[in-house]
């Protein structure tokens, strides 16, 4: 199964996927932005400030999902010693850091008009800040440690330790009395968000996921070329 992520097998597919995403990305972006900024209604309490949700919520989801993916792949990499997984986790990390930071910044911009403050040491916000620190440590481990095997081990360990923070972020609004509102979207079907707002949210999520896929593929391709370039002398 792990042979499927073998660079020689997927190198050609990476180029094709990059071209495919590029061809549909801008059309989907325009549709998503039209729904988010024009067609979706203002909230009855928060007014038009609710539109910040269309960038804030997908960013937070992507930040969380990226770290979960990194941690799970790190565990698999630890057990099965698959080096290609380290290339993938290394490629995901900057994307996850970007979206975690965006979730914090856009959350702050949403907090000012709704809560009357840019920042609060609230459980959800603080645990997101901790997540961004884990991302930074993960990236620094790859940048600062010269020995690649050691860098991978340290980075994987950071990711596995950081995994503890994921349920804390997810359930912080239920476990503690926080300024941050509880989840409006639940997988069990008891979501409290109106479909007129859910549609733009899902469209923006789709667009940002496509963007993530594009960056991941480009970064993964760069990593493969970097390694092959190094190996050329050995052949």
């Amino acid at each position: 199964m792990f042979d499927l992520i073998n660079p020689s097998r997927i190198f050609n597919w990476i180029e094709k996927l990059i071209n495919f995403i590029n061809s549909i990305f801008f059309i989907l972006l325009i549709i998503a932005l039209t729904f988010a900024l024009v067609l979706s209604p203002p909230d009855y309490l928060q007014g038009d400030s609710v539109r910040i949700m269309y960038v804030h919520v997908p960013s937070a989801w992507i930040g969380l999902a990226s770290f979960t993916a990194i941690a799970l792949l790190s565990i698999i990499s630890f057990i099965f010693k698959i080096k290609n997984l380290n290339l993938i986790t290394k490629s995901i990390a900057p994307i996850g850091l970007l979206f975690t930071c965006l979730a914090i910044i856009t959350g702050s911009l949403w907090g000012q008009p709704t809560w009357g403050t840019w920042w609060a040491w609230d459980a959800r916000i603080t645990s997101m800040l901790v997540l961004s620190i884990f991302y930074i440590l993960f990236i620094l481990a790859h940048k600062l440690i010269d020995n690649k095997d050691r860098a991978n081990k340290v980075a994987n360990l950071i990711a596995i330790i950081g995994l503890i923070n994921i349920p804390v972020i997810r359930y912080s609004v239920d476990w503690w009395n926080t300024l941050h509102q509880p989840s409006s979207i639940k997988l069990d079907g008891t979501s409290s968000i109106h479909p007129s707002m859910l549609l733009p949210l899902m469209l923006m999520l789709l667009v940002l996921l496509l963007y993530c896929a594009l960056i991941l593929l480009m970064k993964y391709k760069t990593e493969i070329i970097r390694i092959k370039k190094k190996n050329i002398k050995r052949i």
Binding site: L33, L37, D48, S49, R51, I52, V55, H56, S59, L102, I105, T106, L109, W110, Q112, P113
Partner: peptide, 9 residues
Amino acid sequence: FVWLSFAIT
């Protein structure tokens, strides 16, 4: 707030 959020993103 709205435009700045989208612009930064």
